[in-house]
Amino acid sequence: MRMFFGSWFVLILLSRGTLGIQDGVDARFELWSFMASLWINGHHECGGTVIDNRIILTAAQCVADIPLKNLSVRVGTVDIYKGGSIIAVTAKIVHEKYRELNNDIALLWLKTSAVSDRVAKAPLTIKEPAEREFPSNAGWGERQLESYDAPRKLQNGVTKIHLRKFCSDELIETIGDNLLCSYYTQNDICPGDYGGPLILGNKLVGIAIQGHGCGYVNLPSIYTNVFHYLKWIDDNSKKIRKNK
């Protein structure tokens, strides 16, 4: 069943705040029913997004060197330790040219369908987000950098899209069309949030891949640009279905 996301994303700033996604709030399940928690050896490590019945989209950095037998996902809950379903991962495709900050994208094939009356598929964007738009992010990331203390409940926040030149200038490295640059007050993505979704207009526009100091330094965050990889996602979704 496809959930209605509507304009609720702009209302999250009015809710009670906790940490995780830096300056995030407890997420409403009905707005994030496509959210997946990626587990490695029985522990949450990254986020992911349900984009098809048995396909999760995540960051390559989360799964590139991990054996399939050690991978599973939890869907259908905002509580990292309770509810929903835990499903084994039986196949994966990591971008063939992945390296740090470049082509940081991967697909996971699940043993059974993730979609149910509680779990929806997130539609992919059909255009790139523009400067000064305000997408939403979500995750179970660390409360502080290297604290290894993560919230039990899914957190979400709002960030702001900037020109790539802003990120290039601030980070002193080239940010290409395959990436999105975001920064908004102290909102940031932290370890544990990587691989998770960036949502704008009810569609998936980005994959979280790099934050800087979990909001404690005034530096932007980086996301894989989903629009740039639409053909790769389509081609490799077909491949993973065929060769599962």
Rank of each mutant, 00 (worst) to 15 (best):
F5P: 00
S7G: 05
S7M: 12
F9W: 09
F9V: 04
L13V: 05
T18M: 10
Q22L: 06
D26M: 09
D26I: 15
A27F: 12
F29E: 13
S33Q: 12
W39S: 02
H44R: 02
E45A: 01
E45G: 00
E45V: 02
E45M: 02
G47I: 10
D52R: 05
N53T: 03
R54E: 10
I55M: 03
V63E: 11
A64E: 15
A64S: 11
P67A: 14
R74Q: 15
V75G: 07
T77P: 01
T77Q: 09
G83C: 09
I86H: 02
A88V: 05
A91R: 10
I93M: 05
I93N: 03
V94P: 01
K97Q: 11
K97E: 14
R99Y: 14
E100I: 08
N103Y: 09
A106P: 00
W109M: 07
W109L: 07
K111R: 09
A114T: 04
D117V: 09
A120R: 07
A120G: 04
K121G: 03
K121Y: 09
A122L: 15
I126M: 10
I126H: 08
K127G: 02
P129F: 15
A130V: 10
E131Q: 06
F134W: 10
A138S: 08
G139M: 08
A150D: 01
P151K: 04
K160W: 09
I161Q: 04
R164Y: 07
F166N: 08
L171D: 14
I172G: 02
I175M: 12
G192K: 06
G195D: 07
P197D: 15
L198K: 05
I199D: 07
V205L: 13
V205G: 06
I207F: 09
I207C: 05
A208I: 08
I209G: 02
Q210W: 14
G213Y: 15
G213N: 14
N218W: 09
L219D: 08
L219M: 06
P220A: 12
I222P: 00
F227A: 03
S237I: 08
K239T: 06
K239P: 00
K244P: 00
